[in-house]
Amino acid sequence: MSVAIEQRMRHHMKPLFLDILGRDPRTTVVLADISEDILTDVIERYPDRVINVGIMEQTMISAAAGLALEGFIPIVHTLTPFLVERPYEQLKDDFIYQRLGGNFISSGASYDYSIQGMTHHGPADVALLRNLPGMQIVVPGTTEEFDSLFRQAYANGAPTYYRLSTEENPAPQDTTFGKLTVVQRGTQATVIAVGPMLGRVLEAVGDLDVTVLYCTTVAPFDAETLHAEQRGDAVILVEPYYEGALVPEITAALEDRPVRIKAIGVPHQILSRYGTYQQHNEALGLTARGIRDRITRFLQQPTRQ
């Protein structure tokens, strides 16, 4: 069963940043008035290298690019819509076009901040960012995985997005940046669970004879492992953001095979209800039971030749 752990990943930025800034003098942190309360100790310990620009997200990204131009490794953080959607052109022009490395850590995945309304929801983040050539996208499913994947990727010279969520899987997996993890092997179908969907997916597939692959690096996507491990003719993709973002990667990886693909994720709807994260999951069919129903229906569909 999936468990919601309130803001664990977000709070982990404090020990992670304290450690990384202490080890690596090239690292800088750029904030836009979000999470300074969590990061007070980091700000006080490294006043030169932690800059809170204020509520100006465009300049937050551009100034981080300026730091990267001077040889630093910027770590930029704010809430998802203000990190991805508002300064999208700054990400494109100031990092991608310049060919600069940097790290972008969001808080508030999809409808994590369920009572705040659509302005604070961010289900489009992965679909938007995968349209930026060279942008790496990391979707950790636990705090431990965030820590590990960040350490693996933060200094690799590419711009990298880390999608933090309040939802976490019950247990961390061994995750390698850029690689799918084989969680279980089966013969009838292949299920790809992205980030915090793994807990619900494992509960959903239960006794089904399916392969489960776990994806925490969405870009670059590990086509090689999918190609090697794919079984059956059905591929089910379970994503925690707007459904279907990874379908192009799957079709490209399996272009030499006849497969049926089902994408399960956040539907493209205007979400205007409040309530809890769990209530949204129930309404959108993204509980373990809802996911199981959709997987079994898909597997039972006759294939038309």
Partner: peptide, 16 residues
């Protein structure tokens, strides 16, 4: 509207 903000980052980098 990009370059001046990038210049701020560069100036901060030089200060560090």
């Amino acid at each position: 509207g990009h370059g001046l903000s990038m210049a701020i980052g560069m100036a901060l980098g030089l200060r560090i």
